[in-house]
């Protein structure tokens, strides 16, 4: 009896001081004010990042009068006509379409040309291979501003090319597509050539022995094998090209040809004068929503794709 009772009282005793000890020594307890504070900071930053976006979306449903009198109360009714005004009168629809055309074209071209160059540079030996590779990779270190003035005239001069000229000069979709592609190549080639190098060689050798041509090998064997890499760099390039601002501002000054980012910035100036805030915020929401939806669906891949470049 006595032994049991001493055991019963003795056994819970040892863990207790250990628990308080660890809590003291590492500065952590169950109700630690520091931890609460840290949690508070995390929450605060979460609110800081999301609240302005929600505010913009909420404001896009208000009337202009509500925006002026009660800037951050909920709208009294959902004014969908703000979106109609933004889409048609403020030309957001037009700018959206321009962005789709330009980015659609340049993304396909970037992936195709980037994969071709990266594949050849990664898996074929020939004189000058390294020179070409470093010429591409070196492009990552140069600021675009250095090229800006000459680039403007290069694209302008393309207008005098027979037949094709008007389609690849200033204020043309083609010109901007080619420029986007060219400036996306350095990182694409760098990323994909590392990826192609990591693929096993045995399958390629077997395919060549079976009489497969180099072209078929690339399109039917290597491209499917490189799919994870192509998806990552594709997402990276999509966001980069969709969000591009400097190049269209210089190369697409024509109002009808503006891409979304450029059109939105111009709208911010003009609607500010006109006082149609509601349409401006509706335009902002239209520009924001597709990207946010794509991000929330593919957030894992997008985070991985965007950070992959920095971790390589």
């Amino acid at each position: 009896m006595t032994t049991i009772s001493t055991e019963a009282t003795a056994t819970p005793a040892p863990p207790a001081p250990r628990e308080t000890n660890t809590a003291e020594s590492s500065g952590l307890g169950r109700f630690n004010p520091l931890r609460l504070l840290n949690g508070g900071f995390l929450l605060l930053w979460g609110v800081l990042t999301t609240f302005p976006l929600l505010w913009a979306m909420m404001t896009s449903f208000k009337t202009n009068n509500e925006i002026l009198t009660s800037p951050w109360e909920l709208p009294s009714s959902l004014n969908w006509d703000n979106f109609a005004r933004a889409w048609t009168q403020a030309n957001i629809g037009r700018y959206f379409l321009n962005s789709v055309i330009v980015v659609g074209g340049s993304l396909i071209l970037t992936m195709l040309l980037g994969a071709m160059a990266a594949y050849v540079l990664a898996r074929y030996e020939f004189p000058g291979n390294r020179i070409v590779y470093y010429a591409f990779v070196g492009g990552m270190t140069f600021p675009v501003f250095l090229a800006l003035v000459p680039l403007f005239f290069v694209v302008d001069n393309l207008g005098s090319v027979p037949v094709l000229g008007p389609f690849i000069t200033l204020n043309s979709y083609g010109g901007l597509i080619l420029v986007y592609t060219a400036y996306s190549l350095p990182f694409t080639v760098f990323f994909l050539s590392a990826f192609f190098r990591s693929l096993p060689t045995a399958i390629a050798e077997a395919a060549l022995l079976d009489g497969c041509s180099h072209f078929r090998l690339f399109f039917q064997v290597m491209m499917p094998m490189a799919r994870p890499g192509l998806v990552s760099i594709g997402l990276f390039n999509f966001l980069g090209q969709w969000n591009q601002y400097l190049l269209p501002v210089v190369l697409m000054p024509d109002e009808d040809k503006r891409v979304l980012s450029q059109g939105l910035a111009a709208l911010a100036v003009s609607q500010g004068y006109r006082g149609d805030w509601a349409a401006l915020f509706a335009g902002l929401t239209i520009a924001m929503l597709p990207v946010l939806i794509v991000y929330l669906i593919f957030q894992r891949q997008i985070q991985a794709g965007l950070t992959a470049g920095a971790l390589k």
Partner: peptide, 24 residues
């Protein structure tokens, strides 16, 4: 959840961010 939220501004274009804060 925090990581998803914190990353949000990264996918928005600099134009959207600029216009948003210009009016904020």
């Amino acid at each position: 959840v925090y990581k998803v939220l914190y990353f949000l501004p990264q996918v928005l274009s600099v134009a959207i961010i600029g216009v948003l804060w210009r009016y904020a």
